[in-house]
């Protein structure tokens, strides 16, 4: 068994365009703000970019290292966001983690292009722009000790992952793709990420302690750097802006998918009177019957309902697919022949 944060990687298939595009805007805003801050504080020296890139590649490589969790027989791997923030400072860390997430999405199918905004927000912004400045940094600024490193890392990782996991639940449910009720989804996601956060926090602490013992200046640079300092007020303002943008996106979504919501409620309550609620089902059935392809099928949907996936539609779509497959086959055949010549 693997204890990995795979459930944090949102896929395109689980998102609606409204939620996906809203989150892309929010994340772009946060990335733009990060670029602005490190430019303004003159910390984005030309040397910093290669360091940020190598650190991003380090996180990627570190995620490949599996470790065994004592007493469970399961294994997991590091996420690395908090280590990035501890070494680079929060704004460079946000940019580096976003580069990792984009490469994971483009080359390894971890997450999707439309979901990149959600993934940057859930895995990057929640941990690095919220948990790091509000929890990790204030604790570690009091002076380094092993106990403080453990407390700061575990608390920050827990809070970051809990926030991220909760955002995954909200984004998935608001997209209307899953019928999982809110309570059940939260009960599934939060405890898993509580355990993952604990392990992540312990490893982060071990790494931070190791670096402090060997090259303490690496950690001091990030802590003493002025650029990562951010007031809680500013974080709240950023999050408020995010909520406004997301809210705007979701209101569009809400107006476009009322039928899907009705159907999901019907599915949860187990209401079997659906056919009676949709008298137009007979009309839809008569349309299909008139085509006389598969007259024995009975339908519980009407033409305007999202459930109006008729057999005609399926047959026609399948026909299109077969046609495309045939075209692809002909293209391959032509290519082979031209190669032979």
């Amino acid at each position: 068994m693997f204890v990995t944060p795979v459930m944090m990687h949102m896929a395109d298939a689980l998102l609606s365009p409204g939620v996906g595009l809203s989150m892309i805007l929010v994340s772009l805003f946060a990335l733009g703000y990060s670029v602005y801050r490190i430019r303004k504080d003159h910390t984005l020296t030309e040397q910093k970019i290669p360091v940020m890139a190598v650190m991003a590649a380090f996180v990627f490589a570190a995620q490949m290292i599996n470790f065994t969790i004592p007493g469970t027989g399961s294994s997991g791997h590091l996420c690395g966001g908090m280590i990035l923030a501890a070494v680079l400072g929060q704004y460079p860390a946000v940019l580096s983690l976003s580069a990792v997430l984009l490469i994971q999405c483009l080359f390894f199918a971890d997450g999707g292009l439309l979901a990149i905004g959600c993934n940057v927000f859930n895995m990057g912004l929640c941990a690095i722009l919220v948990a790091y400045p509000l929890i990790y940094k204030p604790i570690m600024k009091r002076g380094f000790s092993n106990a403080r490193a453990f407390v700061a890392s575990i608390l920050a990782c827990e809070v970051g992952l809990q926030l991220g996991a909760f955002c995954v639940v909200l984004q998935t449910l608001l997209s209307g793709i899953t019928a999982l009720p809110f309570g059940a989804f939260v009960a599934l996601m939060q405890p898993i990420h509580l355990a993952i956060g604990l392990v992540e926090g312990v490893i982060t602490a071990l790494v931070v302690i190791f670096i402090h013992n060997t090259r303490p200046e690496l950690l001091d640079t990030a802590l003493e750097n002025k650029s990562p300092t951010v007031s809680a007020k500013r974080v709240v303002v950023i999050l408020a802006a995010a909520v406004v943008v997301i809210g705007g996106g979701l209101s569009l979504l809400a107006s476009s998918n009322p039928d899907g919501l009705e159907w999901s409620i019907a599915g949860v309550t187990g209401d079997t009177e659906l056919e009676a609620q949709y008298p137009a089902a007979e009309a839809a059935g008569s349309v299909v019957n008139s085509t006389a392809v598969l007259p024995d099928y009975a339908f519980a949907s009407d033409a305007e309902n999202p459930l109006g996936t008729t057999v005609s539609g399926l047959v026609g779509s399948a026909f299109c697919v077969v046609l495309a497959g045939g075209a692809a086959w002909v293209i391959s055949l032509t290519k082979k022949k031209s190669k032979a010549h």
Binding site: Q47, P50, V51, A53, V54, M55, A57, F58, A61, A62, I65, N66, F67, T68, I69, P70, S75, L78, I83, V87, V199, V202, I203, A205, L206, V207, I209, F210, I211, T214, R215, L218
Partner: peptide
């Protein structure tokens, strides 16, 4: 002897070493 993965207690020095090597490499690359 461990074949499945690293022991948790070794993760700190292992990942820490990887990080230090990465940092040194960043300097050389720059």
């Amino acid at each position: 002897r461990q074949t499945k993965g690293l022991e948790l207690r070794h993760m700190g020095s292992f990942v820490g070493n990887l990080l230090l090597r990465s940092f040194d490499r960043a300097g050389r690359i720059y």
